[in-house]
């Protein structure tokens, strides 16, 4: 019997057309890249029972289980139920029928570094924030890549995302506890931006240079530096790989609260909906921003949001990157002439 499936529906269900005729692969979403090890058994079972026993770990921290016959999709979807319950529904995702698998695949898995559950540098619980975002944004058909990183080291590569959420902290200084050991100034100068200098035997923080990494807090032997209990974020946007114009994300918002980050990303959905070119299969948001211009993007995504008092917003945006069509610089090396 020849296979007759609606490819678009299949794709929306997180399956894909693969090289092998009649065979598909399912992408399992793991928001924040963090899961109970028990769920690995489910992944393993699906791979062993319906696939060929292999699992691919994706760059976005999901699992891609390949070589599943399309005809097994219903069974696979049923097997996915415990994952959907824990990783999506428990985080607030509303799924009408849990037996039907993933209700969308446009919005990619929201990845996160290991965050402060483990990492000393982490300024927030990144996995928890990723899960929260999953709850608010999924399912969604627009192609948007989001990642959360716990500090400006950016181990999750937030700079390669449409929305890179970088957790930062505001170091607060207890003057009386500082003994002038210079550990903070030294570490900031050596590892960061040199935002801390010493004056009269005390550390002085240049707020304009401070990137909120928290290294000074880690370095201080007297706890003179501690973290503001309000958590702040830098939102870098529209970084991407891709065939046309790979580029790094750049800061759009700085020193904003989690609430602002959430609202801005949610506001992006109607922005995309309004401006996306429907003639393309799935226009990525970065190209939409290229077309509408930054001003329109900023106005629409900040619409109705009250920014916290510390927040800073970029005046203009320019992305470091290159156009792949620009080959003027590329020359044959072996037959080069002087």
């Amino acid at each position: 019997m020849s296979l007759d499936i609606n490819r678009k529906k299949v794709t929306k269900n997180a399956y894909r057309v693969t090289k092998r005729r009649n065979m598909t692969a399912i992408r399992v979403r793991v928001p924040g890249g963090h899961l109970d090890a028990e769920h690995l058994k489910t992944v393993a079972e699906i791979a062993q029972k319906f696939g060929d026993g292999n699992v691919h770990i994706t760059i976005r921290q999901g699992f891609e289980i390949p070589n599943i016959p399309f005809e097994k999709m219903n069974e696979v979807n049923a097997a996915l139920k415990p994952l959907l319950e824990t990783l999506q529904c428990a985080n607030g995702v509303v799924i009408e029928n849990l037996d039907n698998g993933y209700p969308g695949a446009g919005m990619r898995n929201i990845s996160a570094c290991i965050g402060n559950r483990v990492c000393p540098f982490g300024n927030v619980d990144t996995s928890a924030l990723a899960a929260k975002l999953e709850g608010q944004l999924f399912p969604n058909d627009f192609h948007v890549k989001i990642a959360v990183t716990g500090c400006p080291n950016d181990c999750i590569k937030a700079h390669m995302q449409d929305f890179g959420i970088i957790a930062i902290c505001e170091p607060q200084f207890d003057y009386d506890s500082c003994i002038g050991c210079e550990a903070c100034a030294n570490t900031c100068r050596r590892k960061v931006t040199g935002a801390i200098t010493m004056r009269n035997g005390k550390a002085v923080r240049d707020v304009r240079r401070c990137i909120g990494c928290g290294e000074c807090v880690l370095a201080c032997p007297t706890s003179a530096w501690t973290r503001n209990q309000t958590k702040f974020f830098r939102l870098v946007i529209m970084g991407r790989t891709g065939k046309k114009n790979p580029r790094l994300a750049v800061p759009f918002l700085n020193w904003v609260t989690e609430d602002v980050v959430m609202k801005v990303i949610k506001n992006t959905i109607p922005y995309i909906d309004k401006h996306i070119l429907r003639c393309l299969a799935k226009e990525h948001i970065g190209y939409i921003v290229d077309r509408t211009g930054y001003d329109t993007f900023r106005r629409e995504v900040l619409d109705g949001i009250e920014l916290n008092s510390e927040a800073k917003v970029a005046k203009t945006l320019q992305w470091p990157g290159y156009d792949t069509v620009n080959d003027a610089n590329m020359k044959s090396y072996n037959q080069r002439k002087v």
Partner: peptide, 9 residues
């Protein structure tokens, strides 16, 4: 002192 430890949270 809540939240003022060396590591966040």
């Amino acid at each position: 002192v809540p939240g003022r430890g060396r590591f966040s949270d």
